[in-house]
């Protein structure tokens, strides 16, 4: 605990990241109850009003919807989906990567080959094609697809983490007292790979936010009227010259969240290195 504080003291940027992240989580939970507008409400008299005018903190878009309200509501979906995605892809990745690396041989070869193939399609293209095919995206389908798209990468990390532990003699010691494979993988090895796995989960969290925002931007993310930061950018891109705030503020929202998560994840990996 003491070293944690000292490390935090040395990394003011990490503190900044954690603070911003908490602000967003707070906003997602409680923000809407403080808002004077909902995300669909159209202020017909004040379309494209400047930030600060007519009680619209960050202005309104072409339909007169409050940009601030939409950003606050948008934080809910992106945080939920990103969190679930990073958890699901990590769990799936650990299961697949561990099985593959632990048994080695043919199983490993087949797994690696399949992962190679899935990884040969850029995750964004994969998610885009599948979501495009499925039609209207929901939180569920979005989570599922993004998780699948990221699973090969997490599986590789998990496999690597397992392999770095597998050579240790405590694994041999467990074998010659006839422990089950399950016990060796998940009781003996898993706790020792927790460092890289946590780093991977937090990094994946940042990647998921990026991907979800990008999918929204490409129009295959959550469907209107659900406010989605990426979608807000592309919706208003045509009026960027006259009402730049409609595009800039959602972009800044994405930027602040994603940078905060990255700073946090960077800090986590520093802590893990220090733990060693």
């Amino acid at each position: 605990m003491k070293t944690m504080f000292l490390l935090l003291k040395r990394n003011p940027l990490a503190v900044l990241g954690i603070v911003i992240l908490f602000i967003w989580i707070f906003a997602a939970f409680f923000g809407p109850s403080f808002l004077s507008y909902t995300y669909t409400e159209m202020d017909m008299d004040h379309q494209m009003s400047l930030p600060g005018e007519y009680n619209h903190l960050l202005g309104t878009d072409a339909l007169g919807r409050d940009v601030f309200a939409r950003i606050i509501y948008g934080s809910r979906s992106i945080l939920t989906v990103a969190l679930m995605t990073s958890l699901f892809s990590s769990i799936a990745g650990i299961l697949i990567g561990f099985t593959s690396g632990y048994f080695g041989g043919l199983i490993d070869m087949i797994f690696l080959r399949i992962m190679d193939i899935v990884m040969a399609i850029p995750p964004l293209v994969l998610a885009m094609v599948v979501l495009g095919i499925l039609g209207d995206s929901t939180i569920f389908s979005l989570t599922l697809i993004v998780s699948i798209a990221y699973t090969p990468a997490t599986a590789r990390v998990a496999r690597g983490a397992l392999l770095s532990c597998k050579g240790n003699e405590y694994v041999d010691a467990a074998r010659i007292r006839n422990e089950s494979h399950f016990f060796i993988m998940f009781v003996e090895i898993l706790p020792n790979t927790i460092g890289p796995v946590i780093v991977e989960i937090t990094a994946r969290f940042a990647y998921s936010i990026m991907m979800i925002a990008s999918l929204g931007f490409l129009g295959v993310g959550l469907q209107p009227p659900t406010p989605d930061w990426g979608m807000m950018v592309i919706e208003n891109k045509s009026i960027i010259k006259t009402a730049s705030w409609t595009v800039l503020y959602p972009s800044l929202a994405i930027a602040s969240l994603v940078i905060a998560v990255s700073l946090f994840s960077d800090f986590v990996s520093k802590v893990m290195i220090h733990e060693k």
Binding site: N168, E169, Y170, D172, A173, I176, N178, E188
Partner: peptide
């Protein structure tokens, strides 16, 4: 190999490794 040995054989033969840090599970 070990999977085919009886529990009594497994008990009867024990192994001490070179690097104790690696032979005891750190968790």
């Amino acid at each position: 190999s070990w999977e085919k040995r009886t529990p009594d054989t497994l008990r009867g033969i024990q192994l001490i490794f070179q690097n104790p840090g690696r032979s005891l599970n750190p968790s």
